[in-house]
Amino acid sequence: MEYFSHLLLNSGIFIILSVSLNLINGICGQFSLGHAGFWAVGAYTGAAYGVYLAPDFLPDFVNLFISCGIGFLTAALAGVLIGVPCLRLRGDYLAIATLGFGEIIRIIIMNMDTVGGPRGFTNIPLWSNLFWVYAWVAITILVIANILRGTHGRAIISIREDEIAADSMGIYTFKYKTMAFVLGAGFAGLAGSLFAHANQFLHPNGFTFMWSVIILLMIILGGLGSITGSIVGAVILTFLPEMLRFMGETISEWRMVIYAVLLILLMLMKPTGIFGKHEFNVLSFLAKFTGKKKEII
């Protein structure tokens, strides 16, 4: 049971990571490969607060809240530092630049003795629990979904669609790209803080470039640009490799191969991901049965 609830907790953290990366990659169309870096920034600063600064008299959930706030702000700050110079680049160049920055962050942490350096950061207080992780999941989704519904969201989406056309509509594309990037980075940092206080141990090698790729996989699997897709992608990719463990010895041995084959098959059959760019919406789902449609004009 403990194992299962740990998985559930991890999948919550990965939902935040994938939804936030989706804001950058899927919705704004800026190909970033540095998400693990922002995750690490949030994890280490949140953990550092827990180990060195947190006053004992505060209840755990207040401390976790402060820690998440610190994780969010520091990662968002890192997002500004990286985003402002990098977002002038496009496509592959941006991907390489963000990848480089993600690695730089990891190397810096590796060389910081106060947070354990290569020995890893230990004795982080256990504050995260299922309730608070999923509360943050809900907040993340609400905030990002709400932004998308408004004018800012339209502007961000139009950049993905066609940056030149967006520019000639009077949209300050650089501002909105930075906004999406910083917000995405901030939520990744928040997930990092939750992660640190759930695992109680951090190591710089837990934040390699591979993790950026895995988060990217989640959003591509779910459907770039779809928040519901990112959630489903994150849940599938946290549970699938683990569930394959329990399917008999042969499958367990070959589980990473099966996992890879399943990914390839899905991409071949549905290259846009499970949800494509669509959102699952209860109201429009019901409308299919009642036959009611709202008129726009």
């Binding site: 502007a155 989406i157 139009s158 669609e161 509509m169 726009i296």
Partner: peptide, 26 residues
Amino acid sequence: IAQSPEGRMVFPDLTVFENLEMGAYL
């Protein structure tokens, strides 16, 4: 000054209506 760019450059994944709304963005 508004430009209708060459090669049309509409926002392909937005509806016609949303495209027009984007035009009135400001």
